[in-house]
């Protein structure tokens, strides 16, 4: 009985001690543990990917056909866009305006997703690149050049990406058409909401949203998603919008860390 009690007290004390560790030490321990677990996680992910490929075979074939049609449409639009870009360049030069800086990243680090959090409390990915590969904290993470999340912890060979669907995720965004600024947040249900949008302008369903680049921590102009619902509460100074991200974290198997 005494032995059992001492085991309980010992384990409980150890767990309590762990919770009192400073965040920097905790991050370091978790980084090392994640590196140690990298190969088992890769193995389980590859098995899941194989099963998913079989399971989604028909769906992928349908999607392939739809994407081919869409690609033809986009080719046609790209031709028009090139015409407009040339015209814009001519007019910019004529008026003596400073041309806007296009979105460019100094370094892109491509990596595989090796683990996904099983809990809604931590919507995170583990990726197989770490500090050894140049991945640093607060780098934006993209899938198909759209925002997926940001790096929150980085170990030697594994890093942790906080997804934009996580309730703790915050990033400044703006509505491309109206230039209204807001704060993008995730939620436990996985929906993304944009808060603190001014009521001055009408936001339409389908409006596209990009990163605002406030504070210089994150780059400006990264595609985020499109508005699917707008909510205006009487008596509130701001309106709120629900956003559907362009990048689907459920399908993302490879992601890109971007450093500006």
């Amino acid at each position: 009985m005494l032995k059992k009690t001492s085991v309980v007290i010992g384990v409980a004390s150890f767990l309590f001690f762990l919770t009192t560790l400073p965040v920097s030490q905790a991050v370091s321990i978790k980084g090392s543990a994640a590196s140690f677990l990298e190969w088992p996680l890769v193995l389980s992910k590859e098995t899941a990917a194989f099963v998913t490929d079989l399971y989604r075979f028909r769906q992928n074939a349908r999607e392939n056909r739809a994407l081919k049609t869409r690609l033809a449409e986009i080719d046609s639009k790209a031709f028009d866009s090139r015409e407009l870009a040339l015209e814009n360049a001519r007019l910019t030069k004529l008026l003596g305006l400073v041309p806007p800086q296009s979105l460019s990243f100094k370094r892109l680090i491509h990596s595989r997703v090796i683990g996904r959090s099983p809990s809604a409390w931590n919507r995170v990915f583990l990726i197989d690149k770490g500090t050894k590969d140049g991945v640093k904290m607060n780098r934006v993470v993209l899938s198909d050049f759209s925002l997926v999340g940001k790096i929150v912890e980085s170990g030697p060979s594994v890093s942790k990406v906080l997804l934009m669907q996580d309730p703790n995720f915050r990033i400044g965004v703006l509505v491309q058409r109206t230039r209204q600024e807001g704060v993008l947040t995730g939620s436990l249900s996985g929906r993304c909401a944009i808060r603190y949008l001014s009521k001055d302008e009408e936001i339409k369903i389908g409006d596209e949203v990009e990163t605002a680049g406030f504070g210089g921590l994150f780059p400006k102009g990264v595609r985020v998603g499109k508005i699917v619902r707008v909510r205006k509460d009487a008596g509130q100074n701001y309106q709120e919008a629900e956003l559907e991200p362009f990048a689907d974290p459920g399908r993302a198997e490879e992601v890109t860390c971007a450093g500006s």
Partner: peptide
């Protein structure tokens, strides 16, 4: 149960952000 639960939670900590042990 306590020892196994602590170890299982430790595995899930890998996906946690910030402090450890919770």
């Amino acid at each position: 149960g306590l020892a196994l639960g602590g170890a299982a939670g430790g595995l899930l900590e890998v996906f946690g952000v910030g402090r450890i042990g919770y």
